[in-house]
Amino acid sequence: MSNSATPARFASEGKSTRSRYTRGTTSNPTDRAGEEIEFANQPALSDTWISRMRIFVAPYFAEFIGTAVFVLMGCGSNLTYIVLTSNAESAWVGNALGWGIGLMLGVFVAGGVSGAMLNPAVALSFAGFRGLPWIQVPFYFFAEFAGAFVGALLAYACFAHSLDPFDGYNRQIAGPFGSAGAFGNFARPFIGNGAAFLSEAVGTGLLVLGVFAITDVNNFPARSCTPIAIGLLLTGLALSIGYPTGYSFNPARDLGPRCAAAIWYGADVFTFHGSYTWVPVAGPMAGGIIGAAAYEAFIVSRRALVEDDKSVSSSVRSSVSIEE
């Protein structure tokens, strides 16, 4: 997921991307509303092919690290929810907050460099509607999946010794001692794949709709509070409609950890619950596009309406003056 104030900024600014890393062309912080970091105080890079390569890969490494941080904290929250709580149902709020704060931190880490989409569904939506170059989309996808995979590995490493007494050294996917759901999502046993697909699509659609609104400079942007707003958005979605499927809303967040879980839980993590793996991948991708399209089609900001009204008024005045 999807998520800074200008998610496609780094990739779409063209030559201005380079100016943030070379001496003498650093932007003036006073000209960047809502930003508090003094870019001019950062060490400059000399103009070499190595520096240019670092600039080229910077957004993808940022996306990788941001997603790894997000998934590490989220999977850690899941493991705490499953393993270390005597009443797991009462820990649902803490679990949702863990994922929301993890997303917030991931956006803080990567937002100024990659835009911190941290979600292939969000990246696809920004490519379709907000100007992210399509040629960069596969690189974002790969960075997000790789970051999610590494974040899940780190979460498992942190909790391995806690899992041992919980399941008696026998890793299980489901049941009273199942813990694979801490990594890849699985719908509740009473939820079919069709209903789960709908739930994931609706949740991701709301997520992308919210991200578009929060980052729309012509609407009511969160600006410097964007990471907090997006983290709370995910927490709110988790608490409101996330229970049936465990709220993936993010193909990378599910598939990356699921691949990591296969190391300990076996290949059954891909076929369990009626080959459920496709649901948290296809559902979010479809829902994200629908949410983005709905925002772009139906939400017209007040500023845009005012500017349109001014242009209409000026054209009317011009036509009147010509007639006179």
Rank of each mutant, 00 (worst) to 15 (best):
M1K: 06
M1C: 01
T6W: 05
P7H: 00
A8H: 00
R9G: 15
A11V: 07
E13W: 14
R23Q: 11
G24K: 03
T25A: 07
N28P: 15
P29A: 01
P29H: 04
P29F: 09
A33V: 15
E36A: 15
E36Y: 14
E36C: 06
Q42H: 14
S46A: 12
W49N: 04
R54V: 09
A62K: 02
L72E: 12
G76A: 09
A91M: 10
V93Y: 07
N95Q: 04
W99N: 12
L103K: 02
G106E: 08
G111W: 04
G112F: 10
P120G: 08
P120N: 03
P120S: 10
A121N: 15
F126P: 00
A127S: 02
F129H: 07
R130N: 01
W134Y: 10
V137S: 15
P138E: 08
F142W: 08
A143H: 02
F145V: 08
G147E: 11
A148Y: 00
V150P: 02
G151Q: 01
G151E: 11
L154Y: 14
A160P: 07
H161A: 08
D164W: 12
P165E: 05
D167S: 14
G168W: 09
Y169M: 13
Y169P: 03
Q172W: 14
G175H: 11
P176L: 15
G178R: 01
S179P: 14
N185I: 13
N185H: 15
P189A: 11
G194K: 10
A201Y: 10
T204L: 12
T204H: 04
L206H: 08
L206R: 04
L209Q: 01
I214P: 06
N219F: 05
N219V: 11
A222M: 10
R223F: 07
R223P: 09
R223L: 05
T226C: 13
T226P: 03
T226S: 03
I228K: 08
A229I: 01
A229S: 06
T235L: 04
G236D: 05
L237T: 00
L237P: 00
S240P: 06
S240R: 14
I241F: 05
Y243F: 02
T245E: 07
T245A: 13
N250L: 00
R253V: 11
D254A: 10
G256E: 00
A260Q: 13
A262K: 02
Y265M: 13
Y265A: 03
Y265F: 12
V269K: 03
V269A: 02
F270N: 04
H273M: 06
S275T: 13
Y276V: 13
P280D: 04
V281D: 02
M285I: 04
A286E: 08
A292V: 01
A292T: 03
A293F: 10
A293I: 01
Y295V: 05
S301C: 05
D309I: 03
V316P: 09
I322V: 07
E324A: 06
